[in-house]
Design a protein around this nucleic acid. Structure first.
Lengths: 206, 206
DNA sequence: ACATTTTTGTGATAAATTTAACATATGCTA
DNA sequence: TAGCATATGTTAAATTTATCACAAAAATGT
């Protein structure tokens, strides 16, 4: 995954910083500090400063950080100061919920196409999107210059879909199916799996 | 989070091992090895052996692991050889999708109650569950001996709901709202946030 | 003006995590 | 039965990650 100098574990924390900064900005805050941010995120101040130091100097001694400026810098670093086109594959209950979720648009992730394999679903409309035939996936992914895809199909079909997406030239995949997928190393992939998170927590219970 | 001897990062990998083992069992496989498992999960064989060694000896030299036996052992370790009662708070599109998801039941997580604050929703039925008034949350959580909760409300209400759940004696929380919550250290909490995962990936793109 | 407080960015240090290597045990083959 | 191949569990080494501590800079107060 990592080919740069910056450890992936550091990169993984940046979106959390950005989330909190945006929340503070929304609340009308102007400045913050590594101490303040760290307290609010449950992370040490030193770690936040160290993490940011991989990318430059964004603060001022004695004063801390301008929230607006740090947001800009983090958005640059994370490449989210632009719009990313997305596709969703699998329009079941979960796909339905995701298509109706407005949060993606607000963060520069724009759903362009939604696909399903079920002839009964193809052609129907969900939240203003026509459900497209997965047979046309490769063609449409290229046509709409889609870089990111979400997989919300059954476990059994997830690898097939991933293979199709890779062939279509997709760059990153957010997989909701509870299965580890095999994709080329240059493809970014992340997993969302509530069962995994629940089992992680129950280890500590009783 | 961690109060035991075993690093949390090790605990976090166990559910992945369990997921793959169950998949192999379903496919009719009888035995596996750290090498085989590692290849399938994209993890080194040494790490899998090291991780398991924190909990005991589950394999046999020269042969590897019995899949069925290792599944049993991991389920014991993760405390998932029992049923955990769950509540869901917030029946929007996402809550709706989760209530209709059968995967929880198949892994011993049983949704018992679903709550919302919207008078228009309270009393309605979703997938056989009556939407309950969040005003009755504390009473019903105790009555149904619910240990785990999922938060699927708006960002603005998530902390309030978490506070209510903690007062009701919940032990762990799976939070889908895009906000870091403040809960007592003895409460287990995990986050599911697709925006965070997407921003993590876009760092590596173009 | 000057001492005090705050806070950054960073080099040094400590801690945590992963990888490597190997003695030991098991099964298979001839 | 002996020899070979396989694979575990574990100790030691290497690597990665987090923490500490402090000089330097900025703001504040007297």
């Amino acid at each position: 995954m990592e080919n740069s100098q910056v450890p992936d574990i550091v990169v993984a924390r940046l979106p959390l910083y950005l989330q909190m900064l945006k929340r503070l900005a929304k609340a009308g805050e102007i400045n913050t500090s590594s101490k303040d941010l760290g307290f609010k995120l449950g992370i040490s101040a030193a770690q936040i400063r160290k993490d940011l130091s991989h990318f430059g100097e964004f603060g001022k001694q004695g004063t801390g950080y301008s929230i607006a400026y740090l947001i800009d810098c983090l958005e640059d670093i994370l490449n989210v100061n632009r719009v990313w086109n997305m596709a969703l594959v699998g329009v079941g209950f979960l796909g339905h919920a995701i298509v109706n979720f407005q949060g993606f648009n607000h963060h520069g992730f724009e759903i362009k196409c939604i696909f399903d394999a079920d002839p009964a679903k193809i052609g129907q409309s969900v939240a203003g999107f026509e459900i497209l035939d997965i047979a046309d996936l490769e063609k449409l992914i290229r046509k709409h210059k889609i870089q990111v895809a979400m997989i919300t199909v059954d476990t059994e079909h997830a690898q097939d879909v991933a293979d199709k997406l890779v062939r279509a030239g997709i760059q990153s995949i957010l997989n909701y199916a509870p299965v580890i997928l095999k994709v080329p190393v240059e493809i970014q992939i992340q997993y969302i799996d509530p069962i995994i998170e629940l089992q992680h927590m129950t280890y500590y219970l009783k």
